[in-house]
């Protein structure tokens, strides 16, 4: 699985990084960075929570 961010919606609130710091990080210049392209199945739950907690609904999980 992968996680995608819609850059037109993301406002770098960083709630995803709070849920899944190994996958999401907000940079010093206020940009959301996705640290890993492929999400390990063991992280699926925490990434799913991160997607749901986003106040701008900017994240989406896709499956290869």
């Amino acid at each position: 699985m992968r996680v995608e961010v819609n850059r037109d919606l993301c406002e770098a609130n960083g709630l995803c990084a709070g849920q899944a710091p190994s996958v999401f990080e907000v940079s010093d210049s206020d940009e959301l960075e996705i640290l890993r392209e492929h999400i390990d199945p063991s992280e699926a739950d925490v990434v799913d929570r991160a997607v749901r907690v986003c106040p701008k609904q900017a994240l989406r999980v896709t499956y290869d």
Partner: peptide, 14 residues
């Protein structure tokens, strides 16, 4: 989305 993009950077963390 378009109209919010115009101003939203000014309200980010930094």
């Amino acid at each position: 989305t378009q109209y919010r993009l115009i101003v939203e950077r000014r309200f980010r963390n930094r």
